[in-house]
Amino acid sequence: MMDRRAFIATLARGLMAAPLTLLAQPQSRLARIGFLAAGSASTRVQQPFLQGMRELGLVEGRDFAVDWRFAEGRYERLPGLGAELVRLKVDVIVAVTTLCVQAAHQATTTTPIVMVGVPDPIGEGFAVSLSRPGGNITGLTNIVTEVSSKHLELLQVAVPRLSLVAVLINPGNPSDALILEQIEGTAYTRRIKVLQVEAGTASQIEAGFAAITRARAQAVIVATDSYFDVQQELIIKLAVGNRLPTISSSPEMTEAGGLMSYGQDLAMHYRRAATYVDKILKGAKPGSLPIEQPTVLEFVINRKTARVLGLVIPRELELRADRAIE
């Protein structure tokens, strides 16, 4: 039989070991989210996504961690950044724009990918259909190609006797070619000539505006592009300096001094991306989650820029504007 001293010693060892056993129990694992964007780090990108996660009851640092990766407009970096996120073994990748989705998809066909802002996911081979995409990609489309025709229509109202419009595109962005094609089709029916201007660097943007001025174009459509977002201050400086009205899909560019913008609310899309991430983390398969299309578009006018350019905004546009910047 165990004597009294041996019993006490055994009991003491058990009591000492109990807390160590509890401490050794595994803690709940943080979900790891990769976020890949072609532009620059910005609260306009990051905060809406984090807000969307909070609205779902998920707190950064408690429930999930985000590995942010931004290419700063240098598209050649995207494949490496996408591969890096896969090596980190993230649970899901949020990829913003077509080039980011391409880079992530090249790196993995198994890790779920939530796309944001892709004009043609079926044409790009990311999905079989919008209702049931299949594969490892789902998320949200954009309609930058479709609204580009509207950009031309709005410019024609804002700029009297518009006959030549320049279209600034990035040759490294496949979506911009679709935008240009759409604008050219609309311009032909309206008897407006189109000047195609390609730029993928700051010096090319400067040279492009010099060409626009020489050609005496009366306005500029800035195609949707992450590098143009990075360089928006330069673009607006050159446009205003040359007294050129601009329109884009980006309200941020209008806030920075562009004349007008018409497009979807990307902040809302980043919030919606969080819903996809939450469902995937809970076990949903991306291939069975329908792809969403934008339903809300915003038209913004910068009245201050109009005054600088010497333009009088027609009453028709004032009434249609969702927001006016003084």
Rank of each mutant, 00 (worst) to 15 (best):
L238P: 01
T111I: 15
L155T: 09
V94C: 07
K89H: 13
P245M: 04
T10C: 12
F35I: 11
D265P: 07
R307T: 09
F209S: 07
L266P: 03
A324L: 01
T145D: 10
L50V: 13
H151V: 05
L85R: 13
A324M: 15
I179H: 10
P26Q: 12
K285N: 10
T224E: 14
Q264T: 14
G39H: 03
F49K: 08
V147L: 05
I313N: 06
M16S: 12
I221H: 09
D120F: 00
D322W: 04
P174E: 07
L319E: 01
L30C: 13
L178V: 08
D63F: 12
A65V: 13
E60T: 11
V159F: 10
V277S: 08
Q46W: 05
K150V: 12
Q51I: 03
T108A: 08
V128C: 06
L289M: 11
P133Q: 05
L317E: 06
A31M: 15
L99C: 05
L238W: 05
S42V: 07
Q204A: 10
G125L: 07
A127P: 01
S203V: 15
A306L: 00
N142H: 10
R272D: 00
L11Q: 06
L36P: 03
V240L: 11
G125N: 00
I247E: 07
D225A: 08
A18I: 15
E55L: 09
R32F: 11
Q196V: 11
N170G: 12
A210E: 11
R272I: 04
T97W: 03
L22N: 06
A24C: 10
A256R: 10
T201L: 08
F299E: 00
V296A: 07
K237S: 06
L154N: 01
R13F: 14
D67K: 14
M115Q: 12
P171R: 08
L58C: 03
G57T: 00
P245E: 01
R62L: 09
G34M: 09
Q264I: 10
Y75Q: 11
L22Y: 13
T254A: 14
S175L: 06
A202H: 12
K282D: 06
G125C: 02
A321D: 05
R69D: 07
A127H: 00
R315W: 00
R320E: 12
Y262Q: 06
P245R: 05
P79M: 13
R4C: 04
R4A: 13
A12G: 15
I205C: 07
T246A: 01
I291A: 06
A256E: 01
G263S: 04
Y262N: 05
E146I: 02
E181A: 15
V128M: 14
T108S: 15
R320T: 07
G200L: 14
I33Y: 02
G123Q: 07
L168V: 13
E72F: 12
V90L: 04
G82M: 07
L30Q: 15
V308D: 05
E55F: 04
A6M: 10
D63L: 03
I143Y: 09
D278F: 08
L244E: 00
E318Y: 01
L81T: 04
T108L: 09
M53N: 04
P174L: 02
I212C: 01
V167G: 11
L58E: 05
A65Q: 15
L266E: 10
S248E: 08
F70K: 01
R216E: 08
L99I: 08
L238S: 02
Q231M: 14
L30K: 10
A65R: 14
L36H: 05
V220H: 00
T111Y: 07
E146L: 06
R271E: 15
D120T: 05
